[in-house]
Simulated assay, not measured.
Amino acid sequence: METVDLNDWPGRELSDEELDVAYNVRRKAGPELFDRHMARYRAMSAAAVDGLPGRPGLRYDEASGERLDVWGIEEGRLRPVFVFVHGGYWMALSRHESSFMARALHERGVATVVPDYTLAPAATLEEIVRQVRASVAWVHRHGRGHGLDPDRIVVGGSSAGGHLTGMTMVGGWQEDLGLPADVVKAAMPFSGLFDIRPITRVYVNATVGLDVARAAALSPALLPAERRCPAVVAVAEHDGDGFLLQSRLFQRHWNAGDLMVVPDRDHFDVVLDLADPDSAVSRALLGLFATL
């Protein structure tokens, strides 16, 4: 791995106020629109899993006690798995707002797994990354007992969940958990953060508490990846400028997938298109499964 210049990161020349504009998508949306989006997350997730076959509340990590939900399984058959990691800048939301795609995927033959993780500041970002990787390990080790195919795992996530998706795509962690290097067969991060050094200078860092060196060590765009799984890097047309830049840079860095700029969507509603099986993002996700 090449030595990383800690002071050379995208947007470093911007003022703190300019960085906040680029990365504070909640402020960009405004309180009324933000609250409306969050209400949609909750309502759509509740509707998606109402009556859907599944096994919610399974403990996947003994150390933290964190749990995940399994949705859209079929008795007597192993289904490919979409592991969806929620966003919230590592400090908000949960699995309960994050299963809105489960019914649409179930109808297309794909199961959904939605893990919780301990939110900052109760957990460091290193610990959050460990937990998300542990959830993937749980699917690989125990999935068969819950109708999940451990050899067909696709990981995706939105915003901070896009960052955490990236941290499952890179190498260097699978062996320690007894996993094959290709445990994640494909990935679809939405509006992700892949070089998180800019976060050290925006409001989020008051909760996450990173310095530049730790941020670099937790940046998927700066970490080794001898095997580059197929990926679709999705971002909204009306996203924050920082997220648009991050997605473009990571797609070029990853060099094993497509950049998908979704028209007429913002940072919060782009991922909700996964609830519509005929949307462009759903077709892209199902296209990844078709390659497995």
Results as ranks from 00 to 15, higher is better:
residue 255 N to P: 02
residue 163 H to G: 08
residue 75 E to C: 05
residue 261 V to E: 09
residue 231 A to H: 01
residue 250 F to W: 12
residue 91 M to F: 09
residue 9 W to F: 15
residue 22 A to I: 09
residue 148 L to T: 02
residue 97 E to Y: 12
residue 158 S to P: 01
residue 152 R to L: 08
residue 30 G to H: 15
residue 52 L to W: 13
residue 37 H to T: 03
residue 171 G to R: 01
residue 228 R to C: 08
residue 189 P to I: 06
residue 123 A to R: 07
residue 211 D to G: 07
residue 19 L to F: 11
residue 12 R to S: 15
residue 92 A to N: 10
residue 68 L to V: 05
residue 93 L to Q: 11
residue 123 A to E: 13
residue 101 M to W: 06
residue 241 D to H: 05
residue 60 Y to C: 02
residue 240 G to C: 09
residue 87 G to F: 01
residue 162 G to D: 05
residue 78 L to Q: 04
residue 1 M to V: 14
residue 34 F to G: 00
residue 12 R to I: 14
residue 264 D to Q: 15
residue 197 R to T: 12
residue 253 H to C: 12
residue 285 L to G: 02
residue 150 P to V: 12
residue 179 L to R: 06
residue 140 H to V: 09
residue 143 G to T: 04
residue 20 D to S: 13
residue 279 S to P: 06
residue 158 S to W: 08
residue 23 Y to E: 01
residue 137 A to M: 13
residue 220 P to I: 04
residue 281 V to F: 03
residue 175 E to W: 12
residue 231 A to G: 07
residue 116 D to Q: 03
residue 222 L to K: 00
residue 101 M to S: 01
residue 98 S to V: 05
residue 107 E to A: 15
residue 56 P to H: 01
residue 162 G to T: 02
residue 178 G to N: 10
residue 61 D to N: 12
residue 264 D to K: 14
residue 10 P to H: 09
residue 85 V to I: 15
residue 59 R to L: 11
residue 233 V to W: 00
residue 196 I to Q: 02
residue 12 R to L: 09
residue 32 E to F: 11
residue 236 A to Y: 06
residue 268 F to C: 00
residue 13 E to I: 07
residue 270 V to Q: 07
residue 129 V to C: 07
residue 46 A to S: 15
residue 15 S to H: 11
residue 248 R to P: 04
residue 50 D to H: 04
residue 43 A to I: 12
residue 202 V to T: 10
residue 76 G to T: 04
residue 93 L to D: 07
residue 243 F to H: 07
residue 138 W to Y: 14
residue 244 L to A: 03
residue 240 G to D: 10
residue 249 L to S: 13
residue 235 V to E: 02
residue 213 A to G: 07
residue 198 P to M: 11
residue 30 G to V: 15
residue 68 L to K: 03
residue 168 T to M: 08
residue 213 A to I: 10
residue 268 F to Y: 03
residue 268 F to Q: 01
residue 154 V to P: 00
residue 148 L to K: 05
residue 288 L to Q: 06
residue 110 V to K: 05
residue 256 A to Q: 03
residue 172 G to K: 08
residue 126 E to C: 05
residue 9 W to V: 02
residue 9 W to R: 06
residue 7 N to T: 15
residue 281 V to A: 03
residue 283 R to P: 11
residue 60 Y to V: 04
residue 50 D to V: 03
